[in-house]
Design a protein around this nucleic acid. Structure first.
Length: 650
RNA sequence: GCCGACGUAGCACAGCGGUAGUGCAACCGAUUCGUAAUCGGUAGGUCGCGAGUUCGAUUCUCGCCGUCGGCACCA
């Protein structure tokens, strides 16, 4: 006699095992209609599942987040059925729901193209209209194998064979079509509704392994209703407008060209932005007791052999040789990272525990031969500059240094407009160097430091570096892709390999621990994200051109030039627009160029020595005497780490 | 690197087996016009690179390079 407890605390007894459908019907016709699935004692289940014992039950209706996931998962099934109806011989593999949608991987000699979408979507609508019920069937392993062997579905057979022994194997049918699936599903295909759209095709390796066959993946998106779908598609269009590659071109920040694949040509305006961020970072690091260094670009392979990079990462290193016959057998490599060079500096002279922690920073230009398919605008390049630093410290200092680092990183991200970032904690991988006891202490120190610093992290099991655990600080681009920017990695191995030592308090020689850490990660990537974050409309202190002084008539030109000079003298980045154009046109152009402040000078202002300030793209205007305008903009345009300092007298 | 799509003027795009067009930008001229595009004129392209098919290739085929979307990679 099961007693069902509902979320409001009320209970309902039943005579025997009941399905969710029955319970819903017993509560009311509205719920019976709305319930798509249910959660029984915390487990999501089909509405048609039987409940035989006392249980807590919650119905899932269209409004619940779980429903959205089910709509997408169900939609993936419908996609697979549609594809198999239209393209006989296509084999199915897997098709999960993902953020904002779903995909399904197919095996077919001829990959799908977007031209196939209209037919597939039409077929999907047909299947949804049929409204076949999702029917769950528990089968034995042998039976499951048999079903898919008969259908010639070798990928499914492989999946079944690899399922854990105690796994209950279930098949879900929607009408004639059956898939291996864990479930749960909604009641019928009709519950999916009309709000879905196929988006793109892509190649994907079977089970993610490059040695496996390439499958043809179809991505789609699905929502509760048309309104949500439209909103999502509009959001995607808006996101495209923020693309750093597009904005970089429009604002004349940088360009890329094939003679230097993966390297950025920074234009004057882009370089202003770069330098503004670099100057800011340098001040921040100085204030945080880092010491800046600069190390060689080209380093003999012997150092890379010693550090271990030669063995592990040679494939990603650019090599250089010279023709000189005496030098001909020497091989140099462009540094892919800075740490071995920093250890060389550490190793000059004898270090004492009193010197630690030593925080050695470098805006280090690195080159890595990234796979061609990985390149992406300025976010993933082959030549980049890290805001790198290595903290040489004693093991007991790891936690305190981590807290310091996280505090610094948070302050910097806040200043640059990022209050919302994710932290991933990657712990020991299977293949690793160092004893477990050391890993225990390092991981413990990092976790503790996160708690102290008030940072919430998600665990990323087994993803640590082979030399130590790490924290990754992840920012998201306009299109919703995640990028690792900041990182903190604990390293016990490199000091060993490169023989770094210090004299400890007890007079013995010890190995320092190295903390590899970066906040921006690479300037290139970070600036790409910064551009997208602000859609190119930077806060005044970051804007490459902060003020444009624009004239209305030629008579105003001398004063405009005088005003621009005064603004420049106050440290502002200023341009003049003296063109023979109407002010309307100038406003439009500078809005397009995402200039934050337009200072308009007409005949009146020229006579009175005033500026009309307009914050673009806004419409409000304020008229100020030149000196006041300069003081105001100067104050506003100051970097956040400077603006708290008292402003020097004019 | 793998799968697919794409590569035409500075930018956005059109076109096509018969040696290229539109808009904006650029340049020249007129206009001096008070806050979301003034008017007129001129110039600009080995149609990514290389090879093949063809009387003839920007157009069709192949190779390479690059870009884009994924996958894989990301010390």
């Amino acid at each position: 006699m099961p007693v069902i407890t509902l979320p409001d605390g009320s209970t309902r007894p039943f005579d025997g095992a009941v399905t969710g459908t029955t319970v819903a019907a017993s509560i009311g016709p509205g719920l019976a209609k709305a319930a798509l699935a249910m959660e029984v004692d915390g487990r999501l289940m089909d509405l048609s599942a039987e409940i035989g014992t006392d249980a807590k039950l919650r119905f899932i209706t269209r409004r619940d987040p779980e429903a959205l996931e089910m709509i997408r998962h169900d939609c993936a099934h419908v996609l697979a059925e549609a594809v198999q109806e239209l393209f006989p011989g296509t084999q199915v593999t897997i098709g999960p729901s993902i953020e904002n949608g779903f995909y399904y991987d197919f095996h077919r000699n001829e990959p799908f193209t977007p031209e196939d979408f209209p037919a597939i979507e039409a077929k999907m609508r047909e299947i949804i209209a049929r409204g076949a019920a999702f029917q769950r069937r528990v089968v034995s392993r042998a039976e499951a194998v048999d079903v898919f062997v008969k259908k010639g579905e070798r990928f499914k057979v492989e999946l079944i064979r690899d399922l854990p022994a105690d796994q209950v194997i279930t098949l879900y049918s929607q009408g004639e079509w059956t898939d291996l699936c864990r479930g749960p599903h909604m009641r019928t295909t009709a519950d999916i509704g009309p709000a879905f759209k196929l988006q793109k095709v892509a190649g994907a390796y079977w089970r993610g392994k490059p040695e496996n066959p390439v499958l043809s993946r179809i991505y789609g998106t699905a929502w509760r209703d048309q309104k949500e779908l439209d909103a999502y598609l509009t959001m995607l269009e808006e996101a495209e407008k923020r693309d750093h590659r597009k904005i970089g071109r429009e604002m004349h920040l940088f360009h890329l060209q094939e003679e230097a694949t993966g390297s950025v040509f920074w234009h004057p305006k882009g370089w202003k932005l770069y330098r503004t961020v670099e100057d800011y970072m340098r001040r921040r690091l100085d204030a945080a007791d880092y010491e800046e260094v600069k190390t060689p670009q080209l380093v003999d392979r012997r150092l890379w052999e010693a550090s271990g990079h030669w063995e592990k990462f040679r494939h990603a290193m650019f090599l250089a040789k010279v023709e000189d016959k005496d030098e001909a057998d020497r091989t140099y490599a462009l540094k892919p990272m800075n740490c071995p060079c920093h250890v060389q500096i550490f190793n000059q002279g004898i270090r004492s525990y009193r010197d630690l922690p030593m925080r050695m920073a470098e805006f280090g230009a690195c080159h890595r031969f990234e796979p061609s398919g990985a390149l992406h605008g300025i976010m993933r390049v082959r030549a980049f500059t890290q805001d790198d630093a290595h903290i040489f410290c004693e093991e007991h200092q790891i936690a305190a240094e981590t807290v310091r680092f996280v505090d610094l990183l948070s302050a910097i991200y806040r200043d640059l407009g990022f209050t919302d970032f994710r932290v991933k904690f990657s712990d020991r991988p299977e293949v690793r160097a160092g004893e477990d006891a050391v890993w225990d202490r390092a991981e413990g120190a990092l976790k503790e430091a996160c708690v102290t610093a008030g940072v919430e992290y998600e665990l990323n099991p087994g993803e640590g570096a082979f030399y130590g655990p790490k924290l990754e600080f992840v920012l998201r681009d306009a299109i919703g892709r995640d990028w690792q920017c900041g990182t903190l990695q604990v390293d016990f191995v490199l000091p060993e390999r490169l023989d770094a030592t210090y004299v400890a308090e007890d007079g013995t020689r010890k190995r320092p621990v190295m903390l590899h850490r970066a906040i921006l990660g690479s300037f290139e990537r970070f600036l790409g994200i910064l551009i997208e974050q602000h859609a190119g409309r930077f806060p005044l202190w970051l804007a490459p051109v902060q003020v444009v002084v624009a004239t209305i008539v030629d008579d105003a030109t001398p004063f405009a030039q005088q005003a621009a000079a005064a603004l420049r003298a106050a440290g502002l980045r200023v341009e003049t627009d003296l063109r023979n154009e109407k002010i309307n046109r100038k406003v439009v152009d500078h809005i397009e160029q995402r200039v934050p402040v337009l200072a308009v000078v007409g005949r009146r202002e020229a006579e009175e020595g005033k500026l009309v300030l307009r914050r673009l793209p806004g419409r409000e205007q304020e008229v100020l005497p030149l000196a006041e305008a300069v003081a105001l903009l100067r104050r506003e345009g100051m970097a956040p780490d400077l603006s708290s300092a008292p402003v020097a007298a004019e």
